[in-house]
């Protein structure tokens, strides 16, 4: 039972990490809380589901969602945040919340308010790991999450582009003087973060076998909790915080489910952390 809960917590935590990554990448370079990222995530779930329904090919669904939402993210940067960058940061934040609400209602108009099921079969069977029996879908989710997190680690930690991202997040002006084309780095962040969020949307849709217009709502709040816990703009911090939140949530609900609703736990943790360590679990107090 414990092992089962643990695996479930890892699955949820991994998905949180995928969603929050885009937010961290964007916050790091623009200092904007990109709330509309959750709309990209929900859109990804729909694009994936529709593509899957038409073609019966899950991989095609993943690819279509990644491409579509990657471009969606780039357009958000170009047409919504870009013109607002000279304004105080509250202005793009409000635009972002507006875009989020608009996108949710747009999905509702297009696909109706009801939840759609995601009947994808995956190329994995039951996996038995000691006490835990992991359904094939969860194995698939874990595998895709692991690949994407590894890819993120590689891009941020091992490439010239990732180095430029880190430099821009620490001192954008000096990075420009060193020859970094900052708008291009930022555009790539949106492309990459949005593609990953789109795939996370599909994974969550598969996990709960349900895709619905407001599915971005709870992740929108939770990804904020995750990036703050992770120390705003820290990629490793985001990943650790996401797994921590997924595990704590799942284990607490598993053992004391009647005390607190699952979704409240993230916010109790957020408030507690902000009171005790305002710079986040992994933030630098000097940053």
């Amino acid at each position: 039972m414990l092992a089962q809960q643990f695996v479930s917590g890892i699955v949820i935590g991994g998905v949180y990490a995928l969603i929050a990554m885009g937010l961290t990448l964007v916050y790091g370079v623009l200092r904007i809380l990109h709330v509309a990222h959750a709309a990209v995530y929900a859109t990804g779930a729909y694009v994936g589901l529709i593509t899957f329904q038409r073609t019966d090919n899950l991989w095609l669904g993943l690819a279509a969602a990644a491409v579509f939402c990657g471009l969606f993210g780039v357009m958000i940067h170009r047409f919504v945040y870009g013109p607002l960058l000279d304004q105080p940061r509250i202005v793009p934040l409000i635009a972002s919340i507006g875009l989020f609400i608009f996108s949710q209602d747009f999905l509702r108009l297009l696909f109706g308010p009801y939840a759609m099921s995601f009947p994808a079969s995956v190329p994995f069977g039951l996996l038995e790991l000691g006490d835990a029996v992991i359904p094939g879908r969860q194995v698939f989710i874990l595998a895709v999450t692991a690949v994407l997190l590894a890819l993120t680690w590689y891009v941020v930690g091992r490439t010239r582009l990732g180095l430029a991202w880190t430099a821009v997040s620490q001192d954008a002006e000096t990075a420009v003087a060193m020859g970094v084309n900052v708008p291009r780095v930022v555009a790539f962040n949106f492309l990459f973060g949005s593609s990953i969020a789109a795939i996370a949307g599909i994974l969550v849709g598969m996990h709960y076998n349900s895709v619905y217009p407001a599915m971005g709502e709870m992740p929108a709040y939770k990804m904020l909790a995750v990036v703050v816990l992770g120390g705003l703009g820290s990629v490793p911090g985001t990943v650790v915080a996401a797994f921590l939140l997924g595990l704590v949530e799942t284990l607490l609900v598993g053992f004391a489910g009647f005390v607190l609703p699952r979704d409240a736990i993230a916010f109790v943790a957020l408030i507690a952390i902000l009171l005790l360590r305002p710079e986040g679990l992994f933030g630098r107090s000097d940053a």
Partner: peptide, 29 residues
Amino acid sequence: WARAAAGIGYVPEGRRVFPGLTVEQNLRM
């Protein structure tokens, strides 16, 4: 960002090294 590539190097006031990057990563930048 194209002016660096054109051959203009810059040592900023207050040094402005990237504090979280290592010495070698700063040089790579």
